[in-house]
């Protein structure tokens, strides 16, 4: 409805309104994102690189949550968005983001494995582990 209103007003605009003016149809502010995104990297002290596939990663994260919050921790949904060798991108509900961060930081797996939190953000397009600092 509102875009029709904008259209009908368009010809009647004064000269001050430049022809290049973009007409805004709708704008809103998103304040409560649904998810929190993490970029994790598996770090290990052993010389051989550990097996790291989606199922192992999910199991590791599940163990971490279980150790930190017990049976409740295992109920927090974790979605693995991408897995690239030792790098892992996951999303968790925003309310559980803090709990997940702490659980993952505290976890140490077999063979002295642990996850490093490289980046954390509420918006996936903003997730960046160095903010361009590696360019210098």
């Amino acid at each position: 409805m509102s875009e029709e209103a904008v259209d009908t007003h368009a010809p009647a605009l004064s000269k001050a309104q430049r022809p290049q003016a973009a007409s805004i149809l709708h704008s809103s502010t998103l304040r409560l994102p649904q998810w929190t995104y993490f970029h994790l990297r598996l770090f290990t002290l052993s010389t051989e690189s550990p097996a790291h596939d989606a199922v192992t990663a999910r199991k590791n994260l599940n163990t971490a949550m279980m150790r930190y919050l017990g049976i409740i921790g295992s109920s927090i949904s974790i979605d693995i968005l991408k897995l690239d060798n030792l790098d892992l991108w996951v999303r968790v509900p925003r309310e559980s983001g803090g709990a997940f961060h702490e659980a993952v930081s505290a976890w140490i797996g077999q063979g002295d494995m642990k996850y490093l939190v490289k980046a954390k953000d509420d918006w996936l397009v903003k997730l960046s582990d160095s903010n361009g600092q590696d360019m210098f």
């Binding site: 709708h26 704008s27 502010t29 998103l30 304040r31 994102p33 929190t36 925003r94 509420d122 918006w123």
Partner: peptide, 9 residues
């Protein structure tokens, strides 16, 4: 969290 400003134009 920091907000996201969405515009449809």
């Amino acid at each position: 969290s920091s907000p996201c400003y969405f515009t449809h134009l």
